[in-house]
């Protein structure tokens, strides 16, 4: 009875553990992915031996006739070791391709070993080598996935942070709120702005809200549409919206685009808008007589 290819591989790795480790290490050196500038020999060797040990364990337990599924439970230990090493290496500035090459460098030493022990049975040698290649490739791809997932997570987190930062609702006075918009106003942000604003209206029982677009770079039809919808929702809540910070340039663009603001109050500056808001909620700012200079 022939032994399963993976069992054979596992046995091979365990039998000559240090030999394979040294050879793997040497291949990495040759390929230029050893990075002696970032890791000492000792640390590198420790990482490799952790990985290799976990690998040999997994090989003894998987069934190679099935597709290689790194996400399966049997791989969990190796996955953990792999992600730890990837994390450590990326934190020190190792590039994704170097990580992939780092794993692929295991192929050659194992092929050499296989050749030594199975040179008498070329058929078996070929089939085991092919299986091993498949497994290592799957590992390398998994590392890539891991990189992409990590990066996506960072992007998503930054996007959320940016979103939060960019839509603060500020109470200017009793019953008067303002939301200074900065940057670009896409559908996603417009939604966020509207939600924040409407919830704040309830929270503060606000009667007037000033939507300040001084910091909005471009006002096109879509942005204007978002602004008007926000104003409409504000009105439905029973408050009034004032759009402020409309520069002469933006006023001209809006007219050229045929944007009709309808009943929505607009003011050129936040100062003018605040004066109007005070008038509506019944406050007045007056100069103290004595302070006149």
């Amino acid at each position: 009875m022939t032994v399963a290819p993976t069992t054979e591989l596992s046995r091979l790795l365990r039998e000559d553990f240090d030999g394979v480790l040294d050879a793997w290490f040497a291949t990495q050196k040759r390929e230029g992915v050893r990075r002696p500038d970032l890791f000492s020999d000792r640390e590198s060797r420790r990482q490799l031996s952790d990985l290799l040990r976990a690998f040999a364990e997994v090989l003894a337990r998987i069934d190679i006739t099935e597709p290689v599924d790194i996400e399966a439970d049997v791989w969990s230990e190796l996955r953990l070791a792999l992600s730890e090493i990837t994390l450590v290496r990326t934190e020190r500035g190792v590039a994704p391709w170097e990580m992939t090459a780092f794993i692929l460098a295991l192929k050659q030493p194992v092929f050499v070993k296989l050749n030594e022990s199975l040179s008498g049975t070329p058929d078996r040698l070929l089939s085991i080598a092919a299986d091993f290649g498949r497994i290592v490739d799957a590992l390398a791809m998994h590392i890539n996935e891991y990189f992409i997932a990590e990066r996506d997570e960072i992007i998503e987190r930054q996007r959320a942070e940016m979103m939060e930062l960019s839509t603060p609702v500020v109470q200017l006075w009793e019953r008067v709120l303002t939301i200074p918009l900065i940057g670009t106003l896409d559908s996603m942000r417009a939604q966020e702005v509207m939600e924040n604003l409407l919830n704040s209206i309830v929270e503060h029982s606000a009667e007037v809200v000033i939507v300040d677009i001084t910091g909005v770079r471009v006002v096109d039809t879509q942005v204007a549409q978002h602004l008007l919808r926000t104003a409409a929702a504000v009105r439905l809540m029973g408050a009034e919206a004032i759009i402020s910070g409309i520069s002469p340039k933006i006023a001209q663009t809006m007219v050229e685009l045929g944007v009709d603001v309808g009943e929505v109050t607009t003011r050129p500056s936040i100062r003018a808008a605040l004066a109007e808001a005070f008038r509506r909620v019944g406050f007045q700012i007056s100069r103290i007589e004595d302070s006149r200079v």
Binding site: L236, M237, G238
Partner: peptide
């Protein structure tokens, strides 16, 4: 006639 007390989610849906 006044419509009062609209919730934010309702206002957004209507818009």
């Amino acid at each position: 006639t006044y419509i009062v007390g609209m919730r934010p989610a309702v206002a957004m849906t209507l818009v």
